[in-house]
Amino acid sequence: MLELRLTQAGLLKKVLESIKDLVTDANFDCSATGFSLQAMDSSHVALVALLLRSDGFEHYRCDHNISMGMNLGNMAKMLRCASDDDTVTIKADDGSDTVTFMFESPSQDKISDYEMKLMDIDSEHLGIPEAEYQAIVRMSASEFARICKDLGTIGDTVIISVTKEGVQFSTKGDIGTANIICRKNTAVDKKEEATVIEMAEPVSLTFASRYLIAFTKATPLAGQVTISMSYDMPIVVEYKMETMGYMRFYLAPKIEE
């Protein structure tokens, strides 16, 4: 028996909207730790790792570990039927091949339930060890989204270079080149606008713009984004959800042959 109650359906809606274009089907894993998902895109270039911590839910009952295969597009469709301020309850009985989403309006005068078919998915879980990264940048999530979108219109790849002064995003395309430097800056009006650099060594890596743009669909989840890089390692783009957990995207770099 699984029963998870979350007061803000809006959060779950944003989570689904941010991953449904990257991953078609995925297993949601439910354990005492929380409601989590790890899935790669079909080309195995990008990976999404989501954790919604159990203590972030208003009610969290998960009798034993359970994995539920869902089509994320269909799940997003059902969640779109909830209002952002509805309470959502996710329910599944042991051995059932369906999951139920129940939405309750804040005044309790409208209660809806949507039952969705589960699917069997061969999940390929990657073991991702906790790593020390050579460079970590924290910056405005909306600024990062803007940069990825702007550079994506000019070139297919983005070079991200971190020095202790700041982070540089560069691209090159048929029509020309572009460079954006965000200098470290903590003297800001709103703390989410700060750009903070923690760096052991300068790092410069190349990534496909379209994946970075896809990751920025998670921008509504957090004011700041954390970008972690080490030489010849996948980049990690993380959106932390206050009290609830995180959405992390991993992207393998492009290398010179």
Binding site: S43, H44, L126, A252, K254, I255, E257
Partner: peptide, 14 residues
Amino acid sequence: LKTQLRLEAFYTFN
């Protein structure tokens, strides 16, 4: 020319 690496180049399947 740059080659796109896959995640399996870095991580192993559990």
